[in-house]
Design a binder for these strands. Sequence first.
DNA 1: CTTATTGCAAACCATTTGCATCCGG
DNA 2: CCGGATGCAAATGGTTTGCAATAAG
Lengths: 145, 145
Amino acid sequence: MDLGKRLRSRGYRVTPQREVIYRVLQENEGKPLSLDDIHSLACEKRPGLGLTTVYRTLDLFRELEVALPVHLHGDSQYYEINEGKHHHHMVCLSCGDVELLEACLIEEIEDIVRDGSDFMITGHCMSLFGYCPDCLERGRGKGSR
Amino acid sequence: MDLGKRLRSRGYRVTPQREVIYRVLQENEGKPLSLDDIHSLACEKRPGLGLTTVYRTLDLFRELEVALPVHLHGDSQYYEINEGKHHHHMVCLSCGDVELLEACLIEEIEDIVRDGSDFMITGHCMSLFGYCPDCLERGRGKGSR
DNA sequence: CTTATTGCAAACCATTTGCATCCGG
DNA sequence: CCGGATGCAAATGGTTTGCAATAAG
C-alpha cells in the first residue's frame, strides 16, 4: 500500500510532487477535496507546485485507483484517497460540509435490479443532501439556499 | 401541469422557444439529454434556436422544477422532464445507454442515517453503472472501456 | 407600449496541450 | 544519460455575459 511501489510497479516515477499530493489526500481522508483545494494544500508543502501537475497527478491517481473521484452536487470535481473502505457522502446544503456514511444498500439494490432487468451492475454512486446538525441548530435548516 | 400556466403564474413569458424545448423534453421522457442534445433536437423543430437560449431555458425549467438535472458519469450536465415520478438510472459503461430504475431505497437509507447521525436528509441522487443486456450479449461486458 | 426574451459575439474560466527544461532511475 | 515529469504559457471548449433587436402581454 505504499505509493512508491504502486507507481514503480506500473512504470511511473516517484516524484516529490506526487508524494506531496498523496500526503495531502491522506491527511484529508474522508474529506473530498477539489482540485484547487489540493493545489493550495500541496503548495503549502511545496511552493511552486503547478496546478497542471495537480490535474495530471489526479488523473494518474485515479487510473491507479490511488484516489477516487467524488460526485457531489455542483460542477467541480472532488477527489479523496482510496483506502478501500467503500462509503457515501451526506452534503449539507447550507454550509457544504460533508459527512461520511458508511452504510450502503447496494446489495439490496442489486437484488431489485436482478429481478427487474438483465442489466449487470458493476458500480454505483450515491450522495445524500440535507442539513447538518450544526446548521439545523442555527436555524439554517430550511429557507437558506 | 401545462407549461404556459407554470410560466405565467411566475411572471415568465410563454415563447415558442420555451415551448419547443419543453416538447423536446416531453418526447424524450426517461432519456436524459445533454444540453447539446436538447439544442439539436430543438433546432430540428425551430431552426436558428440559439444555444444560449437552451442554457437559459434549462436554468429556468430547473428553477420551476419543470426539468430535473441528472447526474451521470462524466462531465456534462443532463436534463430530463420532471413528471413527478421519482426514479434513478442505470448507465451502460459500454454503449452509454440509460435504463430507468423505478425502485428507490431512500427510506431505508434515511432510517439508517437517522440512527447514526443528526443529519436531516432532504434529497439524494444515485446512479448505477454496469452493462446493458445488449452489450453483455455482444461480449462487450468487461474488457471494453 | 413596456420590458422580458432572444441570438449573436465577446468574455470567462476551468481544463488541456505544446514545449523546453528538469530530474528520477 | 534517457525518457518521463514538471511548469509555464498558449490553446481549447463549454458556459456565461453584454447588448441591440425582437416579440409577448
